[in-house]
Design a protein around this nucleic acid. Structure first.
Lengths: 343, 343
DNA sequence: CCATTGGCTTGTATCGTTTCAGCAACCGGG
DNA sequence: CCCGGTTGCTGAAACGATACAAGCCAATGG
């Protein structure tokens, strides 16, 4: 059914090794022999068997990236960045989504380990993954943490300063005079969420005089969760209700925007809204969203580069921790007045 | 470095085959032997080598899906549907993005063929892929066309009726009294685009009396391309300018919305806008978008089911062609009056 | 004219699994 | 006491590719 190198050899009247040479070191084969082999390959429709290659070589050319949610445009942009780098290097990037579920994450890691992937980019779900990743590294599979700083010095990481991002958002709101601010996000086990919250908290504490940060925890970082959180906000009596919401990502913010509108609250007149990530859709929302921008594609590119670099110099390799700075993009959802902007 | 089955066998004091049995047919091994083997596995941190497994088995457990654009929420939803089915069956789904580029598509297919994937879900870029896919099928790799009907009877397909979708959109606009309608989409080599256009064209022709459908071709189906098309529209003198735009997908429509706003045209008062796909962000846009809804996740689920089914019954298998019906969802971008809706 | 070189090619071992025929020990029935 | 049937395990043969030592032959140099 599927021709192997042996049949190609037979047909071309050469030995196994020669065919292999044609494939891998064409210059080491005499031109006319090479041509005969190439003809045979074409005639039989021969295609290399990667399993065999990998088995022999002991390593694969595929790199995996495990993200929290493929449907989140933030991650698809990260993936695109990583993809570009990996493909340029002749590899293949496989994308797995943990869906914020530690069990699925583990399952994916199991499979990827069995496949002996060349390296792993991961945005881990919780905090209990250290031993697991440790083991991969010990096995010679380099790991780069994405969108997550690492205290660990035995692996690289690429992150954006989430505390700073949280501070930027909170300071912006506090400066606009908000005193009751709500934080929408969760699960708190996700470090990015915790850090953004911590940053906001920090900034408000520094601000002094009873600025309050109230937590509206969500079960996931999705539009639906944002809508649901907004319902809780709307249900509060006006006196207790926050006058501004800081959402842990833009999906939540977009959901919250919908939920608030349904609940009869106007953004930003009745309640201001800040998102996080500045995904492409944030600026195009019903009320264009103020958001904390992250260098999404660059995150992916840098992570992939570091990974490939580590994969080359098998073994010794100075682990680096790159931290990018987020940037506040102010739009209508916090600006009180003004006309729609579309950047 | 990485333990193999042989070392496990040695440590447990049994033969190779026994370890393999513990892994694959645990009941065929005496409980205490089994335990010894399991202990050895744990102590050595043994992990199966999938390459070797695949090589021996001649087939892999991974299924691939090749989509036009991972950043398009339509496709991420399709992917999620497919993923759910494949994972439930114990497999793994690898996602590749062709970026609407035939060369990249070919490259991915090459790699996937080398990997001897179990099956392939694909939304092909152009129309010249038949021979290519044919070859995969001949090799025993089942192929299911996604979001694309197939005249071919030797493979399955799952699609949504794009001509009908185009008709729905165009009829809606014509019924609202629009006489100069613009179609924004491209490249036309993408069958979905061509079909949606054809459907619209058809509906308007049936409508008679000089209703005009003018083409604004784009280079891709992205937000940026939509913005750029809107600039072209804005540049036209008011008399020639369409009073409505039908965009081949929601990304284009969202981009167009931004471009039109920047160009000083109001949606829907000055120009109406219809998108396609009804992605989650369509309803949350600055002006909630009227759009043609497709059953996105179901598309993926059905495709994956058909693929797995075909992969089971190696060989004979009745190829099916499932066609879903799209559905027009009317929102503010074509409704002239009314208040924001958020569903 | 022999030795040496260098260009091409061959054959074989190897990677880590799974599979399968075969062997040893044991059991109960005739 | 032997025989057929289990049960539990072993050992070797694949799977398809790559690497590498070794061989062959013609050409080159002394």
């Amino acid at each position: 059914m599927t021709a192997s190198i042996k049949e190609v050899a037979q047909r071309a009247g050469v030995s196994l090794g020669t065919v292999s040479n044609v494939l891998n070191r064409p210059d080491a084969v005499a031109p006319q022999t090479r041509q005969r082999v190439l003809d045979a390959i074409r005639e039989l429709g021969y295609v290399r068997n990667d399993s065999a290659r990998q088995l022999r070589a002991g390593r694969s050319r595929t790199v995996a990236i495990v993200v929290l949610d493929v449907s989140n445009p933030f991650f698809t942009d990260v993936v695109r960045g990583a993809e570009a780098v990996v493909e340029a290097a002749g590899g293949m990037l496989v994308v797995c989504s943990s869906g914020e579920d530690p069990a699925r994450e583990r399952h994916h890691l199991d499979l990827l380990e069995e496949q002996r992937v060349r390296g792993l980019l991961i945005t881990p779900v919780g905090d209990d993954h250290h031993r697991r990743l440790e083991r991969l590294v010990a096995r010679g599979i380099p790991v780069v943490l994405v969108d997550r700083g690492s205290g660990q010095s035995n692996r690289c990481s690429v992150a954006v300063d989430d505390r700073l991002g949280g501070r930027l958002a909170a300071e912006h709101l506090a400066a606009a005079g908000h005193r009751r601010i709500g934080f929408v996000g969760g699960p708190l086990a996700i470090p990015q969420v915790a850090d953004r919250h911590a940053g906001a908290s920090e900034a408000l504490a520094a601000h002094g005089d009873g600025v309050e940060l109230r937590m509206f925890e969500t079960r996931s970082l999705t539009v639906a969760a944002g809508r649901e959180a907004a319902e809780r906000v709307c249900a509060l009596p006006a006196k207790q209700r926050p006058t501004a919401l800081f959402c842990a990502n833009d999906l939540l913010a977009l959901g919250a925007l919908q939920g608030l509108t349904v609940g009869g609250l106007r953004v930003p007149q009745d309640i201001a809204l800040v998102g996080y990530d500045d995904i492409e859709f944030a600026g195009a929302a019903a009320v264009p969203l103020t958001s904390v921008r992250q260098p999404r594609e660059q995150l992916g590119r840098t992570a992939a580069q570091m990974l490939l670099e580590e994969a080359e110099n098998d073994g010794d390799h100075g682990h680096r921790h790159v931290v990018f700075q987020p940037q506040l993009v102010v739009r209508q959802s916090t600006s009180g007045v003004g006309r729609p902007q579309t950047t």
